[in-house]
């Protein structure tokens, strides 16, 4: 069962990326997932920190073009590109520890029998540009610090004022430091107010809406930019789709594109995180498939849907031979 394998992988990486550093495990500073570097003893660092960082960021690469420093900044970018090409959106659906945290909230909500909040299609569409705005924010602000004299307290703008992983993930390492308001000066105070307030709102959002933060995640945009040259493919045999809508309804990100696509084979959309929930719930044989190069990793089938959604036979009910 794909969803069980995913659960195992997610939790393995949650432990590795949250506590790995304490045991000497570190996956570097260019991970295409929200492995928060503010967690003491983390096992890897989100690339967004490197992208904004004063020593590894884009502005450093531009300012030191041709030098070792410039190349080092590009090294992180290169590593990020390689990692992204290798696994593409699997980073989001299978590895990202912050994604796993969100899935825990969804699990809790379902256990409590509280149903999911629904966003209208138009609201969902209106949210799409937000992650581009956030990406621009985290690129432009460091450039302004480096070249336009913006106060240095604006550094790491996304991590320090927006990202809810920064206040929340260190809690797993026993640190409440990032939940505090920083009264050092006006900029730090405003940033910390934003950060804590967004984290509070997001926490509730994540509870009521599956993968709520992922709707705004700028990492999705960066990963999506590389989809065409990645060996990871998510494809749909459009001519065999019956349009039952299971893919759309089951999608944690409420993606409609897979269901609506009627002409194009490639359906790895911007918000997709390759959790394969849609493929698991598609009852049409071979309509949805996830490939790595030419190899098919998983593909939809009626048999799989039966195994996935029909509970094991209990005494007294009808036994069905598969």
């Amino acid at each position: 069962m794909v969803f069980k394998l995913r659960l195992i992988v997610q939790h393995l990486f949650f432990v590795l990326l949250t506590y790995g550093g304490r045991f000497g495990f570190h996956m570097g500073f260019a991970l295409p997932c929200f492995s928060c570097p503010f967690v003491m003893g983390c096992g890897g660092s989100c690339y967004l920190l490197s992208l904004q960082g004063n020593w590894w960021g884009l502005q450093m690469a531009l300012a030191n073009w041709g030098t070792v420093m410039g190349l080092q900044a590009l090294y992180y970018l290169g590593l990020f590109v390689l990692l992204t090409l290798a696994l593409n959106k699997f980073w989001c659906g299978w590895i990202c520890p912050f994604g796993t945290l969100q899935d825990w909230f969804t699990y809790l909500r379902r256990r409590l029998g509280i149903r999911e909040a629904q966003l209208s299609w138009s609201a969902r569409d209106r949210l799409k540009p937000v992650k581009y705005i956030l990406l621009a924010y985290m690129i432009v602000v460091p450039l302004l610090i480096a070249h336009a004299g913006l106060h240095y307290d604006f550094h790491l703008p996304f991590c320090r004022s927006i990202c809810p992983a920064k206040p929340l993930m260190p809690l797993f390492a026993g640190s409440t430091r990032h939940l505090a308001l920083d009264f050092t000066n006006t900029v730090t105070l405003v940033f910390s107010i934003l950060s804590v307030a967004i984290a509070g709102g997001m926490l509730v959002g994540m509870f009521f809406k599956e993968r709520f933060f992922c709707l705004f995640c700028p990492m999705l945009v960066l990963i999506h930019l590389l989809r065409k040259i990645s060996p990871v493919r998510f494809e749909k045999e459009v001519g065999a789709c019956l349009g039952c809508g299971n893919c759309r309804r089951n999608c944690p990100m409420d993606i409609r594109d897979v269901h609506e696509q009627k002409t194009d084979k490639a359906v790895l959309s911007e918000d997709c995180m390759l959790c394969m929930t849609c493929t698991e719930s598609c009852p049409a044989d071979g309509v949805l498939s996830v490939r790595f190069f030419k190899w098919r990793l998983f593909s939809s089938s009626r048999d799989y849907v039966a195994r996935r959604f029909i509970k094991p036979h209990k005494a007294g009910s009808v036994k069905v031979k598969v």
């Binding site: 999911e116 009852p283 039966a306």
Partner: peptide, 27 residues
């Protein structure tokens, strides 16, 4: 046609899955 694959087993989740199975999967 299709299959009833609820996103979640709340009453609303079940009913939504049923409604869509009988509506969207119909040709």
């Amino acid at each position: 046609p299709g299959a009833v694959c609820p996103e979640e087993n709340s009453f609303h989740g079940l009913l939504r899955a049923l409604a869509e199975r009988y509506h969207m999967a119909c040709i």
